[in-house]
Write a protein that binds this DNA or RNA. Structure first.
Lengths: 207, 207
DNA sequence: AGTGCTATTGGTCACTTGTCCAATAATTGT
DNA sequence: ACAATTATTGGACAAGTGACCAATAGCACT
């Protein structure tokens, strides 16, 4: 039999590390954190498992970073930070619109995955709480901005932020349910929650 | 060395099966579903692993039943069914009081665990959705009873039930967070949500 | 063109998991 | 007291995991 010559591709360490994390993040988002194994990432990258271990002596560390990368990348599309485009109200509307979409399902599953698995993995627990803090700050910044522009009526921005996120995460906890059990009251619950805690008239955010 | 004679205890099959499930449920609640292994359950029961496999040819089935048992037993103390003691309002108050307590933490972790793990385990997915339905029905029954007694103002009992559970599950999704990050708005959020959707005056359920 | 550095390979090792099975012994029935 | 049933043991097996390491080969530099 022909033995595969296996042409060796040598890359810049930083670049290779990045490549590994990208693959790991992709697998985490699509299939779950427990699927992110040294061998699976190696396979996706057409590389030997030993190489992954070389860049990540601890597999747990790789998984934690993969989660952080995936979660943060998704956050960037849900609640963009820097080039603030649109009014706070428009940005919130966008956020809740996407939260209801099917694209969001994979992210909900990832968060559920991470929040549970973090129970046994200290480094993942750190990553989860860090991403939670970033998300919280990102949302609260928009709310404060809207309040300063007198778009919202919101005496307690942090409380409002947390209450909205509780609803978002609550809905997300059903991400793995297959039952087509559904109810109109859940369709735009997070948007209606936001309208309520921000003193907006019904329909301003839901649509 | 002295070889342990291992006195063999032979039990009624039904009884043994029950004993196994009890141990499995206990481990699931205290340490997590992934800790419920054939060998671990056997160790707790002072029995050889092969015996567990004899009663549960599929380990996944054992884990699913263990979850169902644990979740249902806890539900029985949170939202007791039959000997309806107390008014609907008192029973709700009890429920929210316990939900905020530390005893509830283990149960929140178990639900988080099951909701994630069900992604890969069909039989667990069934068990989760079944326990969700039972919980939902149990809560909705109280709400309907209260509405019929004109204690609540609630045009859509199912919608109210779901909205309350979303908040309960949302708070539960932080069960593995260690950060002492907390905020007054989260302390009795589920009780306040119930007050709102049931048309109760603030403070009726929270306390 | 040659040389040194190191990214990459290929393989091994220990550990844990679920599953399966023949042998054994406790209990029941006669 | 004896025999039959079967609950229970003890051990094996394959599969999958993370971790580790000496040998190899690609690339950058002289």
């Amino acid at each position: 039999m022909s033995r595969a010559p296996t042409p060796r591709i040598r890359k810049n360490p930083a670049e290779r590390r990045d490549e590994i994390l990208d693959a790991a993040a992709r697998i985490a988002l699509a299939e779950g954190l427990e699927i992110v194994t040294v061998r699976r990432v190696a396979e996706d990258l057409q590389v030997r498992p030993g190489l992954i271990s070389h860049y990540f002596p601890s597999a747990e560390e790789m998984v934690s970073e993969a989660f952080a990368r995936a979660a943060h990348a998704e956050l960037e599309t849900l609640l963009p930070a820097e080039p603030t485009t649109g009014t706070p109200l428009e940005r919130l509307r966008d956020f809740f619109l996407r939260s209801a979409g099917d694209d969001y399902l994979a992210l909900s599953r990832l968060w559920l995955n991470a929040r549970h698995t973090s129970r046994f993995r200290p480094s993942l627990q750190d990553a989860v709480q860090q991403q939670e803090a970033i998300t919280r700050d990102r949302l609260m910044a928009i709310i404060i901005e809207g309040r300063d522009q007198d778009l919202f009526s919101c005496p307690d921005p942090l409380g409002a932020t947390l209450e909205i996120l509780v609803v978002v995460d609550g809905l997300g906890s059903y991400a793995n349910d297959t039952s087509d059990y559904w109810h109109a009251s859940l369709a735009d619950l997070s948007a209606r929650t936001a309208e309520r805690v921000l003193g907006l008239s019904p329909g301003t955010l839901a649509g």
